[in-house]
Amino acid sequence: MGDRRRSLCSRSHDALEIPGWSSSPSNRSPNPPCPSRPSASSRDGMPATARTTTQSAKLNQPSTLDDVEVIAFDVDNTLVDILQTKRDTFAATLETLADRGLAIDPEAQARELYAFALEEGIDDPDVVPRFLVEELGVDDERMLADGRRTMERLEPGMVQLYEGVISTLDQLRSRGYQLCAVTDAPREAVRRRLPPNGLTGRFDRVIVREDTPRGKADTRPFEMLLEAVDARPEQLVAIGDHPVRDVSNVVAMGGHGVLAEHGTRSSYNDVAAEHEPTAAIDGVEELLALLPGCDQRSSALASLTR
């Protein structure tokens, strides 16, 4: 077993602190707050339900969204709470393997698997068998293969959307916007995440990691999208949780970027973005105030800056 096994497993399970994790299913929050910010219910001293969309959305450049016709959504941690999805999937996978005879403590070691996946690759299709081999020393080939199959089978049923995603997409569609998805997730992962929650068929274009050489490390995915829908950069707004990949890169090419703060991870605090976002939201529904439709754009945007 490698050094990581000693570093993870030599500590007590209670000492392995992972932000947002609760090992007890009854205490597990379906949408845990980002570790870097207070929860939505207490952040400004009033319940989340008491804050209106226009109070919450933060618009930095009020006049620049008038020409927007195309909305490009990131998927993970923007529409889908991927970290909670993975926590639940890993826990259920290890519980299943334990029921089939694997000698593990599924509740405690699900925490270790989650930490391993954050370090090694949250979307690695072999993350469960790799964890079993590298961290627990499992050498049963049938059990390792079963671990991968079980994770792939269970994940679609564990996928969790953020609140208001479907209704927001439908309202934006009714207002005339083209809706697209641009994600760094691999194609197979996207196929597992979109259908269970009704996202399939709601996007005009979907661009995944394999479609470009470097993904959203550069602007090529967004350039490809603009070519596909025959639009100009100023007609594009991208929504995502990463300050550079989802926001700054799009602003640099002449488009608009909205930072999805509800999904932004604390590890992004030190990310140096060349361009600030056009706006920031703390929930997908807040887009409805920023993008109200052709006839209402000017008045709604003006109200946000008063």
Rank of each mutant, 00 (worst) to 15 (best):
D76K: 03
A145K: 13
E261Y: 00
S36W: 11
T85S: 10
H262S: 01
E141Y: 04
P125C: 05
S39C: 14
A279I: 01
G283Y: 05
A91Q: 13
D230V: 10
L236V: 09
L259T: 02
D184F: 08
A228K: 12
S26V: 12
P292G: 06
R28I: 01
C9M: 13
A185P: 07
V208L: 02
D211E: 12
Y177A: 08
Y268W: 10
P233V: 08
R142V: 09
L290V: 05
R153Q: 15
V247I: 14
P129I: 01
T53A: 03
R202W: 02
T305V: 15
D81G: 03
S29R: 15
R6D: 13
Q109Y: 12
C180R: 00
M158E: 14
R5I: 00
S12W: 08
A98H: 15
S23F: 02
R130S: 14
Q235N: 08
S63P: 00
D88R: 13
P195F: 10
N249I: 03
R173C: 06
A115M: 10
I207C: 06
V271C: 05
R6A: 13
V75M: 12
C294L: 14
E119L: 08
V244T: 15
S167Q: 14
D124G: 09
F73L: 11
P277C: 06
L194F: 13
L113N: 05
P19I: 02
L144Y: 07
D282L: 00
V258M: 06
P277K: 03
P33Y: 06
S167V: 06
I239A: 05
D88G: 00
S7I: 11
R4W: 10
A40W: 06
L136P: 03
K216H: 11
R214V: 11
G45K: 08
E135R: 14
G255D: 08
G45A: 08
Y268P: 00
T49G: 11
R148V: 01
F116D: 05
V206L: 10
R130Y: 04
T53M: 08
V258C: 07
T93C: 12
R37H: 12
K58W: 02
G263I: 04
G255M: 09
D105L: 10
A145P: 04
E107C: 09
V271M: 07
Q171S: 13
E112A: 13
V127K: 13
V206A: 10
G198M: 07
A280F: 00
F116K: 05
E107H: 04
P25N: 07
D99C: 08
R28C: 11
H275P: 00
M151Y: 15
G157T: 10
V206S: 04
D76W: 02
L287Y: 07
R6L: 11
Y162W: 10
G293I: 09
Q61E: 14
L132N: 05
L169M: 10
L225N: 09
G257W: 03
P30W: 03
T54P: 01
N31K: 02
C294E: 15
